[in-house]
Nucleic acid binder design. Structure first.
Lengths: 201, 201
DNA sequence: CTACTATATGGACCGTTGGTCAAGTTGTCT
DNA sequence: AGACAACTTGACCAACGGTCCATATAGTAG
């Protein structure tokens, strides 16, 4: 497995242009109103280029999500507690949920857009939930839950907690700027679950 | 507001035929592989007829859902406890969640199909979550939570609980016949939340 | 039975959009 | 400079939800 050839300079430039154009459009319009052609036009490239770089509409959204999630990913992997390693599971979960909600509230459109993309995917429906961001988050939360409450079905509960972001009514909440409400709700859920570590109120 | 004209006999017959054809196809194929044209063909009617009866793809799925959910709807409204009125909120919630999961596990395809339909809707995107079934369930759970734990954000928590069914990884579970696992998970969640009414195990 | 009308039907047609591809262009390496 | 792989492009395709209206039919009044 040697070093793989670097991406050509023009290709890299176009990738950035596309990413930025998509970001911009997604900020201005409803996710299902943003077509790949529009993105391509806004980025000043041909439609084909977008598909060459990102494979599919879903692929583009995924790339965007990875970019936005990177900071949080690093923080939970190696940042300072309580987000990063070092704090007790209980606290790390609460910290993560807060951070997750904050991040999500800044990117509802993107999440929705990705969902929409997967739903309308024409080609290979592929193995769903191949979303690396979701996987990473789920693995993290799942592991923490398992450590804090070995008797629970950690995998499932983690899906329940994280999956809330893919919930349309919940997404609406974020859209309406009520992210604090979601954060509070998740906190009380988590607190109840993780046992009497701290009072619900 | 007088009596509105009854549906013509042939129309009623076709409605049933369409509903049954859709049901059948949905049972045999993946939701996103079932087009309206196929349904129409299987029902022995023209495509136009389907749209006349149900308005849109989403409308058809909705009709199907209502049909499947009717029994449970009646049970929670006026059936015997603990599902129906009479039992303490705590127990009614647990009973409802169990019933909901059971119902959902028999209709994952339908739920997915409806989601897909709404996501790919071409015409009026309309006010989302106009799904009467969801509304009814949410109102029910929400109200029970409010009574059992007035300090919680009942609306939100109800969305969190019911919304789990729209969660792709969770849906996968149901598809794999692990519905009991979901039921157990929701039960422990609810039990933790509703206070020390009964032991988590 | 006939005439009449509201209702229902069907399928050609349309617009949109994700995705493909073959031919041409350009960066990069020696 | 020459060679080659990587890259770009936009016309093109297929699929599908939804529309439309000329035609057919159930229900009904006389």
């Amino acid at each position: 497995m040697g070093e793989q050839r670097r991406e050509r300079a023009d290709a890299a430039r176009n990738r950035r242009a596309i990413l930025e154009a998509a970001e911009e459009l997604l900020r201005l319009h409803r996710p299902d109103e943003v077509s790949i052609e529009q993105v391509a036009a806004a980025a000043g490239v041909g439609k084909g280029t977008v598909f060459h770089r990102f494979g599919s509409r879903a692929g583009l959204m995924l790339a965007l999500m990875e970019e936005r999630a990177q900071e949080l990913s690093e923080a939970i992997a190696a940042g300072p507690p309580p987000l990063g390693p070092g704090a007790p599971p209980h606290e790390r979960i609460l910290a993560f949920l807060d951070a997750m909600v904050a991040l999500a509230s800044r990117n509802v459109g993107l999440i929705t857009a990705h969902e929409h993309a997967v739903a309308t995917q024409r080609s290979a429906a592929g193995p769903r939930e191949a979303n690396p961001v979701y996987r990473r988050w789920h693995a993290h939360v799942s592991e923490l839950i398992a450590r804090a409450r070995p008797d629970l079905d950690a995998t499932l509960v983690a899906h329940l907690l994280i999956g809330s972001l893919h919930n349309e009514p919940v997404a609406r909440l974020l859209l309406d700027g009520e992210s604090e409400r979601l954060a509070a709700g998740l906190r009380s859920l988590a607190t109840s679950l993780l046992g009497p570590g701290s009072a619900p109120m």
